[in-house]
Amino acid sequence: MWGKILGALFGMALLKIPGLFIGLLVGHWFDKAYGGTFASRGGFNGFSRDKSEAQGIFRYNTFAVMGHIAKSNGVVTQSHIQQATVFMEQLGLTATQKQEAQAAFRHGKQADFPLLEQLAEFKSAYRTRPDMLLMFLEIQISTAYVDLNLSSAEQKILTQVASALGISGTQLEQMLGRYEAEARFTKSSSSGAADAGNRLKDAYKILGISSDSSEAELKKAYKKLMSQHHPDKLMSQGLPPELMDVAKQKTQDIQAAYELIRKQGG
């Protein structure tokens, strides 16, 4: 019915009476072809539920795939369990949400965990939100690196995740290099362990540019990454509220790297 109503209104607005009949025909075709699916999702009211549903899918798949990566080497280490626990605390999950996250983590550890099926569902929910797909992969990369080492089994799963989400192998390698640089950069910021030269090298890797990049290239890379990880933008795309701090930390690292490079250049 919605197809006919909207078709008639738009048709009449554009082409008066002839448009009314054309709109009715197009609307009838829509109702017949897609009306059932549209209605089953609650019509226009369904749009208000989509975001909540997508957030639930993001949360569940995040912890399920974390569990799958944790078990990839045969035994779940204490580091992986601690990371998942700390992550839940950092996100400020409610008691119910923690139980759901723990159940998802256990599901991911099972030998018959349908990784590709879960990722297909996840990609379907976020198919128009590429920044969210990248955010998801970044979280899984942090899981794989929890013991400061990336095993072949963990690498294989990350490759499967990236491929299922439509992220190229080249882009995955860049993300892995960027994560390692961010980890060193953040650590050196708090401990002063790295010398200025190595810290600057990591800053360039975080922004994905080389030391001979121009000022224009630096600004372009900075703006692109800030846009990709901006908390408000990700929130509007379906990022669960409790993951806002993760996004904020990413933007802080990007900002710090950018400022260091500009300071060095000046």
Rank of each mutant, 00 (worst) to 15 (best):
E117G: 04
F122Y: 12
F122C: 08
S124R: 14
A125T: 02
A125M: 10
Y126N: 02
R127A: 09
T128E: 14
L133E: 13
L133Q: 09
I139S: 10
Q140V: 05
T143V: 15
A144C: 00
A144D: 05
Y145W: 10
V146A: 11
L148W: 12
N149A: 14
S151C: 04
A153C: 02
A153T: 11
E154P: 01
Q155K: 12
I157K: 04
I157S: 02
T159C: 05
Q160H: 14
Q160K: 11
S163Q: 14
A164W: 04
L165A: 09
I167H: 00
S168K: 04
Q171D: 11
Q171H: 13
L172D: 06
E173G: 03
M175Q: 13
G177K: 03
E180M: 09
A181D: 05
A181Y: 00
R184N: 09
T186N: 10
S188F: 04
S191W: 08
A193P: 03
A194D: 12
A196Y: 12
K201H: 08
D202K: 01
A203V: 00
Y204M: 03
K205T: 00
L207E: 08
L207P: 07
I209A: 00
D212M: 10
E215T: 13
A216C: 05
E217M: 10
E217T: 10
E217W: 01
K219L: 12
K220I: 09
K220E: 10
Y222C: 01
K223V: 12
L225F: 02
M226V: 14
Q228N: 09
P231H: 09
L234H: 02
Q237H: 11
G238S: 01
G238Q: 08
G238W: 04
L239K: 06
L239I: 01
L239W: 06
P240V: 10
E242D: 08
L243V: 05
L243R: 13
L243M: 15
M244K: 14
D245A: 15
A247K: 02
Q249E: 08
K250G: 01
D253N: 12
D253P: 00
Q255F: 09
I261A: 07
Q264S: 15
Q264P: 06
G265V: 07
